[in-house]
Amino acid sequence: MLKWLRLTTTALAVGGCSGPLSTLDTAGSAAASIATLWWAMLAGAAILTVLVMTLLALAFRRRPTPAPGGTRLWIGGLGVAMPSTVLLVLLGFALALGEQTIARKAAGVVVVEASAHQWYWDFRHPGMAGEIVTRDVLHIPAGRPVDLRLEAHDVIHSFWVPRLAGKMDAIPGHVNVIRIDAKEPGRFEGQCAEFCGLGHAGHRFRVVAHDAAGWTAFQRGEQP
């Protein structure tokens, strides 16, 4: 089922769901599992919509005597039992998925400090000879988990690279951590997702995912 869904995802991504900020054109593992969750929920929602609309339409057909069905069917069955079951399954699935994506201790995690400002981002990467600081461009190694420690220096911002993972707020006075990864080397667009004043629309950044050689070069301080 999941494999089938993934295939459909790819097919749809090619035909219309792609874009620099598309959450459906995934390139990271967190974004990929969330997209799978989305397609599964969309299928379920479509079935439920058809069910409700059919029942609604059937109420208007001409009939000699009032149709059967009392509170037991309509309220006990369709109103309580059916949604409870669906929601329980969905909740379990989503909770497990969320547990997988959060930043836990693991080997080989790269940690980058990100600080958000009106209206730019500073990233502090681990380099061979101390920190490497860049503005509005985040460098990561492809295929490895990266934890971003998010801080904000003025108002609340939100770190979001839709093709790689979900978003996390950068809040003044608090430090939040989000884990991202890029499966392949490439360039991915990021956008501030929390309204942060006049420059919010243009509060964007870019993620460069390097292959192993590129990452080593970056850490040595060579400009890519």
Binding site: A31, I34, T101, P162, G166, F195
Partner: peptide, 10 residues
């Protein structure tokens, strides 16, 4: 669903 909201939020 928390993970989906991480993408769809805002």
């Amino acid at each position: 669903m928390v993970p989906f909201d991480w993408q769809a939020h805002d």
